[in-house]
Amino acid sequence: MSTTELSQLLCFAHRGEASAFFKAYDFKASALHPDFWTCDQGLGLLLTGEGLGKAFSKLGLILGAYHQQPRLEIFNLGVAGALRENLEVGSVHKVRTVYGEEEFHSFELIGDLDLITAKKRVLSPEQGHFLSAFAPLVDRELWGLCSVAREAKRPIAAIKIISDRPGADEICTITKENSKEWSEKLLEAFQKESQSETPEEPSMIDILGILDHSAWHFTTTQKRQYENYLQKWQLRDFSQTELQNIAGEIDPKLKPKLRTQKLLTLMQERFSPLETRLRANLEQLFEPHQNSDLQVRFDQSLESQSLDVNLKIHGAKQFQELQTALQSLPLKNFWSVLQGEEDV
């Protein structure tokens, strides 16, 4: 089945909450599900029905059908109950943290108030009192929608309008009577939200301007490493001038590949001067003891106190020589280096 291009999927529990949206946009029924509509502005509208189970299944179905869409943001819009006295009925809030009743996991959104999704309708003040210890708002779906969105790796936001308090009389009647006004408020908040620009993730700036320069050559791994090092450079508060000086000192006659490798080595040395010195000390320490029949390797992270020794045995006499060579390995000095001693 072909699917229309969507950028935002609006999820409501009930039709009344969505009434202003049906008026504002030219939604057309979708063959995907009788409770799903799309419009030419790239919006989808889904009526999930009340409760976690319906939220899981219906959103799961739609996100499954639209899994190839590169960008699809989910908006939950609807009423929520106020669990604390200071919240005004009719006020609109973006949700910040979403908790689930008897669920450990929570979801962090961008907003100003926290919400807990209840497993059942909150009919008694006692139940409301208990849930109010977790969040000031309560609904029946949002935690489920967040779970599905997380699984599908889709961003989600929620705008709620406060409809009532737990235990209020004739809540359904009140909600029905006010649904037109509340839906209009939700529409207004949604449109305002859609117009506000999302700040883009800051990208790592190639402060030397060398990534695409012909005098340098980066493999994919080196590019990633260079970007990682640049990030570290900034976190460590090292200056740009220092980096320029380091790059400037690399022999311009070297081949681009070697220049890149040299730059990465020098940056690494700047991050960990002690380890660099110690590694060099260790290389020097074992160098005179190595030959084609005896190879000694130490852990490059310098964490392990073990050495890997590779031996080639050709004959009895050579074996005796190897034994002598093994006995002369500077093991004490090796362990001293691991103890942080520089002069060994």
Binding site: Q231, K232, W233, L235, R236, F271, S272, L274, E275, L278, S301, L302, E303, Q305, V337, L338, Q339, G340, E341, E342
Partner: peptide, 23 residues
């Protein structure tokens, strides 16, 4: 996050052994 961390003998994230001993 600018430091070079290693997974140490007890699986904790630490500086390299020589660096922490040196410090």
């Amino acid at each position: 996050h600018g430091a070079d961390w290693v997974k140490s003998f007890d699986q904790k994230v630490r500086y390299s052994r020589p660096l922490r001993n040196w410090m």
